[in-house]
Design a protein around this nucleic acid. Structure first.
Lengths: 334, 334
DNA sequence: CTGAAAGCGCTTACAG
DNA sequence: CTGAAAGCGCTTACAG
């Protein structure tokens, strides 16, 4: 069943059928009605490949997600898709391996699917070079600011990682903690980790806490196991610590388990806090103290920005959305 | 940059370039080498839409995943993709809403992308009717058996839910539990829930435990909140319970939190066990006792079966893979 | 408003 | 082994 069959049955030319399919106004009401009837009768749907081959442009937004395991991404992604579809855009999700180059993949996707825009969830800062403009479509980086190394066609929506991390340090300080340790991602590749560390450092210096990042900041993968192992390293190196700030909730969960396995209770012996504000944290025992990233709000702003870039050729914007400190039960007040 | 440009530059006709691109043996070594050079020089990649329009068939496998939040699916999906790519197939992931009809979506995907096979992660049993054969490609249902209502082109790989659930009941019994309650999914739509319940019932009757499913089996969504609320219902209705078997780890986590909020400790006051065997369970406090579904093994078998159906037109198979009871710390021995 | 026709970038019989 | 040509199913100037 092709457009040709529909045309024959309706008694019109294929061009007219195509116009109906594309909501082109230059069709008489009778023709439109008749053709729509035939289309409905056969539940005809035009061949997307042929359509794209001609149009060289789809109506969709490509979303490239690094890793299938990131619960924050899963949440943001869901909201992004809802926002896109509310705005009349379809969305296509491409999961890639953590080790893959997301920009390389975007290039391939743009060639094949001709999306109107590309959203990145998860990024390796090294991959984002000015060559991104070659994609020829507006791009959006989510949960991660691109303001520090601006690229013409790359917008971003994130919380202010620097300020959020500092806020958490202030909170720990206010609860009486003085021996605070940090667990985060690898600084070369993870822009948010670098930003959060810098927020912590500025809070430390403001509060008069001395902290030598080179020897104390503990790098790990953003996984349960990563958090677990980093915590073990810290316990060996810093047995007097009273609080640990992990730069993700998942790492925090790993850290808590490690503490428990070493006979330390949370928060009675050591306090732990995370970052992201996953729903899961509210179900843990103890409930996790964390920084909540507002998934819904971020998705809403992200899609709005991207569509402005697509439809009105607006310049790239780097927007910050407010985070929220969620007090759980995992931080002890001295 | 199209095949035409390559042909001109290499001094051959487009047909020859196409043959090189498709590894057609009817090309002289010189021609192949020369054309490959030009292709590499320009990093040329053929237009997928044009290719598919002609071929009417891609080399990919479509994976339709219900919901972005299922951690078991995320894990299985990752393994499936690795297996596919090892077998020379590309894979394309389509996330759909829990409420959407996955078979309807598969129909659309088949029309547009012409995959060689379709994998379903998550399914509403009502949607799987014999009409599935209309898709015209082999299908595979993962983590969920389709043996009970066989469809010609639908294979499945899963653990034996009936036996696994019975095994868990036996375990609880062996630990001294006599007041066992169940939390699971909705029976009309969730085939695994129905199977697990039936396994529990047969174990109950074998052990001489009386259990009226109609009044005691507590249905919930497969979410943290679902498990939490179901647990609260059970506490109200069955205050003497000593153990709860939740049909997913996520539900179990919700249930544990609910118990805690009602002043009951796990496992000292109430024992809880789950199903799925997520990595997360090993990091919880207490570690979760659960049934592990072997994600890697399932993915390996699933892809192998599907490829046999694709390449050798093999009939659909329903395969069971072994589960494993993982003893954590969430079940008390009396 | 409508039709006839060109063309999107590829693949693949067909002929040589 | 290679080239010339038809055709996949659609869209869109162009002419009327």
């Amino acid at each position: 069943m092709t457009i040709k069959d529909i045309a024959r049955e309706a008694g019109y030319a294929v061009g007219t059928v195509s116009r109906v399919l594309n909501n082109n106004p230059n069709v008489s009401p009778q023709a439109r009605q008749r053709i729509l009837e035939v289309i409905q009768k056969h539940k005809f749907q035009p061949n997307t490949n042929a359509r794209r081959l001609k149009q060289q442009q789809s109506q969709g937004i490509a979303m490239i997600v690094k890793g299938t395991h990131n619960m924050l991404f899963a949440l943001v992604l869901e909201k992004l898709q809802a926002q896109c579809s509310a705005a009349g855009y379809s969305s296509m999700v491409y999961y890639i391996d953590e080790a893959d180059n997301e920009v390389e993949r975007a290039r391939q996707i743009c060639r094949e699917h001709k999306p109107r825009g590309v959203v990145f969830l998860g990024s390796n800062r090294e991959n984002f070079t000015p060559q991104l403009t070659e994609l020829g479509v507006p791009c959006l980086l989510m949960t991660n600011t691109a303001a520090s190394q601006p690229i013409e066609n790359l917008s971003s929506v994130s919380v202010d990682d620097v300020s959020a991390a500092a806020r958490m340090i202030d909170h720990l300080w206010a609860q009486g903690h003085r021996q605070i340790e940090l667990i985060g991602g690898f600084l070369e590749s993870s822009q948010p980790s670098a930003a959060r560390l810098s927020g912590c450092l500025s809070a430390f210096s403001r509060l008069g806490i001395s902290y030598d990042a080179a020897t104390r900041y503990t790098q790990a993968r953003y996984t349960l196991e990563g958090g677990y192992k980093a915590m073990e390293q810290l316990l060996a190196a810093r047995p007097n610590l009273t609080a640990v700030f992990a730069f993700s909730d998942i790492m925090a969960i790993g850290a808590i388990r490690a503490l428990q396995d070493h006979g330390l209770r949370v928060p009675q012996d050591v306090s732990v806090c995370g970052f992201d504000g996953l729903e899961l944290g509210e179900y843990l025992i103890p409930r996790l103290t964390t920084i909540r990233q507002p998934a819904e709000k971020m998705a809403e702003r992200g899609v709005a920005l991207l569509i402005q870039c697509i439809e009105e050729d607006a310049p790239a914007v780097h927007e910050l959305v407010p985070y929220q400190l969620v007090e759980g039960e995992s931080v002890l007040r001295f």
